[in-house]
Design a protein around this nucleic acid. Sequence first.
DNA 1: ATAAATACGCAATATTTTTGCGTCATTCTG
DNA 2: CAGAATGACGCAAAAATATTGCGTATTTAT
Lengths: 157, 157
Amino acid sequence: MIDRIDAKLLNLLQREGPKPVAELGERVGLSASACHRRIRAMEAAGIITGYAARIAPDTIGLGLDVFVDISLTSQSEEALTAFESAVKSFDEILECQLLSGASDYRLRVAARNVADFDRLHRHCLSRLPGVAAMHSAFALRTIKGFEGYPVQPTERR
Amino acid sequence: MIDRIDAKLLNLLQREGPKPVAELGERVGLSASACHRRIRAMEAAGIITGYAARIAPDTIGLGLDVFVDISLTSQSEEALTAFESAVKSFDEILECQLLSGASDYRLRVAARNVADFDRLHRHCLSRLPGVAAMHSAFALRTIKGFEGYPVQPTERR
DNA sequence: ATAAATACGCAATATTTTTGCGTCATTCTG
DNA sequence: CAGAATGACGCAAAAATATTGCGTATTTAT
């Protein structure tokens, strides 16, 4: 159950870095202590799972963002498991999801440049087990980057 | 120029929430003040762009993650601009990128459930200007969620 | 090799977080 | 509907953390 204040807090916390709880409280109409306790409660409830620094990928040399769609040769339990644990083992694979449709996986990888992507391609991607087909799409430009989910208060009953 | 310590710090900061700088310093072999100054410097340099709370989407009712690929009827400057600014105006559209290949946009949206996606479809997606074709793929399962970029020290010269 | 610039650690100071506690509001029970 | 119980709040004190000054060491440039 997320009331209006929690929703506001979550929207703030997802965007504005570590502001003093006193200021957050003021923005949502609460004292610092009340605000603080709400945040802790949402952490304990598993709503807030953690905090992270956002970094600008190009400043650390990661200028290339690539989506890779992959279909497997087999859909057997073992094939999926093997594939997935291989995926998890590579830091360069940033995200991976199983998609509806053609039972495809889609992953997102970060590379320093095209040559580096080639390296990744050979060192990581080609080592993934059970791959039948692979198709890459480069992100030419980011129109909108992830900056948090839009949080709405839970419907009152 | 990112040395080994900065790289370590960035990897920590992207994952572990707000740890005291004293502890971070200890982990990378620095005093609290030195560590603190390095972090501030990386913020000032635009490497760290901010901090954010991570939240578990299903705990706030967003159980559905959908990728939507869209191609436009026109590639004219105005068509792209109009499309992009419309995209930015919808909170439910979490991310949007221009992809190589068929000059397609890909966006990611969050919905509460299938019925809610239908609402989004009608309320947001169908209102995007200049859309020639649209194809949605549902994320059935997340194998690996984004948890930060792998940061490597910049090559020493 | 020497001077300048940069980064460090320590210790003092300033902020922020965290907790105890009494009060008020809301919900449940009989 | 009244009374009790539960939950949330604000205030103020206490604890923890961040921030800064400063002298020293280390690295970089000349």
